[in-house]
């Protein structure tokens, strides 16, 4: 290796490290803040590396509910927001998984059907899905809310699932449609000729090849429904029914912000997505490449 190449590589690594540092800094800072004791969080000048480490903030979030119930009558003034953290977390998990299941299943079935059978208006569906994909949630949210109100569904997790299905389904549909169009039809036809039923072909031949597409659709849905704020804000009201994103805003209470709790919840909100991301990073690139870009 010539000196020039070595130098080039060093420069490249240095550049990448600098950019990565800048990009990751907000999250690193959130993490450091979350493990500092209260006095240190507000110390000026701020300490970059925590001087003393504490899990106090995490404990407050995880044990808040228990602590509140144990305190019983001694708790003077209603549950603090941290008492609901686990409820919020659970709500977000339920809603996210529910949405993902519905959106991926429905879109996979429909996309297969669209690419393998003839329908009137068959061509229009992917176009409409594309348009639906672009419609921002701010347009859906009010009419959806009124519909939910009429059905007496507001403040239920189910209303949230329906809301998220409505914003994720178009993209899933489109992605799966693009995917199935790329899957060669010959193997299926051979199996059909051999006398296998359509359902069996779908189950045994089509689904296994469709996994990368399904995973990409699922990741997209997971991200959207885990991260949404708007629907949660408008649809949900009771403290115990909120999703995480809306709930954590309660750590701002008008005259006081608990930055420690806020950053600890930020970390806990990000971790599930981070784990998922690490496991599925490859599919993300492949899936989005196939679906989002080539259409």
């Amino acid at each position: 290796m010539s000196a020039k190449i070595v130098l080039g590589r060093v420069a490249l690594y240095a550049l990448l490290s600098a950019v990565t540092f800048l990009v990751c800094f907000p999250l690193v800072w959130a993490f450091f803040t979350s493990v500092k004791p209260k006095e240190e969080i507000f110390r000026w000048p701020p300490t970059l590396w925590p001087e003393s480490w504490t899990l106090e903030n995490y404990r407050a979030l995880l044990e808040g509910k228990q602590a509140y119930f144990q305190a019983g009558a001694a708790a003077a003034s209603g549950p603090p927001p941290s008492a609901f953290f686990l409820d919020w977390f659970l709500n977000s998990v339920i809603v996210t998984l529910g949405t993902t299941a519905i959106s991926t299943i429905v879109s996979t079935l429909a996309a297969y059907s669209l690419t393998r059978f003839r329908f009137p208006g068959q061509r229009a569906v992917p176009y409409l899905a594309l348009v639906g994909y672009m419609v921002p949630s701010i347009i859906f949210v009010f009419p959806m809310f009124l519909v939910m109100a009429d059905l007496r569904l507001t403040d239920t997790l189910f209303s949230l699932i329906l809301g998220y299905v409505c914003i994720t389904l178009p993209f899933c549909m489109w992605l799966m449609w693009a995917f199935f169009r790329g899957v060669p039809i010959e193997i299926e036809e051979a199996a059909l000729v051999d006398g296998a039923s359509r359902l069996r072909v779908f189950w045994e031949i089509v689904l296994p090849t469709a996994w990368p597409g399904i995973i990409a659709a699922a990741i997209f849905t997971l991200i959207v429904s885990w991260n949404d704020y708007l629907f949660g804000r408008v649809f949900m009201n009771s403290m115990e029914n909120l999703p995480l994103t809306v709930g954590v805003m309660h750590f701002f209470d008008g005259t006081h912000v608990d930055w420690g709790l806020m950053m600890a919840s930020s970390v806990m909100m990000t971790v599930p997505m981070a784990v998922l991301f690490m496991l599925l990073q490859k599919h993300l690139v492949a899936g989005f490449g196939a679906g989002a870009v080539k259409g």
Binding site: L16, S17, V19, T20, V23, C24, F25, P26, L27, W29, A30, T33, I223, W226, N227, Y229, L244, T245, V248, M249, W259, M262, M263, S266, M269, T270, M273, A274, L276, F277, M278, Q281, L284, V285
Partner: peptide, 24 residues
């Protein structure tokens, strides 16, 4: 490793990053 870290912001919830921004 760099690739993973640089793609990461895409999956960070908006609420998290907006609050972070207000903090930093």
């Amino acid at each position: 490793v760099f690739r993973g870290l640089l793609l990461f912001p895409y999956i960070v919830p908006t609420v998290v990053i907006a609050l972070n921004w207000r903090w930093i």
